[in-house]
């Protein structure tokens, strides 16, 4: 039992860091609302998936060690992404299992690393604060979070407490969006066909908003929706849960949209 407020190291993830800082602040707010003390180590960059999934295990190991050293002092490590949390939780121990100096440290970090929504509900037993968001939304289950970490109900439980928000399930909620990290730029035409299944499926629900927990997938889906001229809004669920939707427009939207390129 941790007597004081649990000390959480927020692993923002590289995409949130670069593209959507509001998600980082939303995650920090949710963690603080749930009673945690939050810090953001400035040593963080990326979990190393681009190297790991490209077969460069040497670099992946080096980056893993860097992340472990930066975060192992915290009670918990939390990331607003199932994919990056999964890398720390599932893949670091595999990457470093034969490294005598690092195997135990990787395992220890894995044990205390969590994806944001599952940490709030499963670990802290926190069921959400006060937030309002008027929308009919559908939720996209990102692959790694769903299949590596078993994240399915947790974000829905939290979102159920948001006033004004109606959640509609889509038939293909669990289908891959075609992002796949570097896959989507290596094989853009295959990725396009896959994301089109996703966008058609979510349009079929009649929802006006798509929510999810992984920025990579959300940027892919939002980018495709924009290209298709769709009006469906896309947001990271943390923005909605933290009541921070007023601070940033939906993904891919801006105040001068519609102006000529």
């Amino acid at each position: 039992m941790i007597q004081q407020a649990p000390h959480v190291g927020l692993f923002a993830t590289c995409l949130v860091d670069l593209m959507r800082p509001t998600v980082g602040f939303a995650a920090a707010k949710l963690l603080e609302d749930a009673g945690c003390r939050v810090d953001v180590p400035m040593d963080q960059t990326c979990c190393g998936q681009p190297a790991y999934n490209s077969g460069d295990t040497g670099e992946a190991r080096a980056i893993a060690k860097h992340v472990i050293a930066a975060f192992e002092g915290f009670d918990y490590v939390v990331a607003p992404s199932g994919s990056c949390a999964g890398t720390l939780r599932v893949h670091y121990p595999q990457l470093l299992k034969d490294d005598a100096a690092w195997a135990a440290r990787a395992e220890a970090l894995a044990q205390k690393t969590h994806e944001l929504f599952s940490f709030l509900t499963d670990v802290l037993n926190w069921m959400g604060g006060e937030a309002r968001y008027d929308a009919t939304a559908t939720y996209h289950d990102s692959c790694s979070g769903l299949r590596e970490l078993g994240i399915k109900q947790q974000p829905r439980t939290l979102l159920a407490g948001v006033e004004g928000l109606e959640l509609k399930e889509s038939r293909e909620a669990e289908a891959c969006c075609g992002f796949g990290g570097l896959f989507c730029v290596k094989y853009p035409d295959i990725s396009e066909r896959i994301v089109d299944v996703k966008t058609a499926d979510l349009e079929a629900t009649g929802a006006d908003t798509l929510l999810g927990g992984d920025l990579g997938c959300l940027m892919n889906i939002a980018g495709r929706l924009k290209r298709q001229g769709s009006a469906v809004k896309v947001r990271h669920a943390a923005e909605v849960l933290a009541g921070m939707t007023g601070e940033v427009p939906p993904l891919g939207e801006g105040k001068n949209d519609g102006a000529e390129d």
Partner: peptide
Amino acid sequence: AVRDLPAPE
């Protein structure tokens, strides 16, 4: 090629 890139904040 196939999708817009949501701009960073």
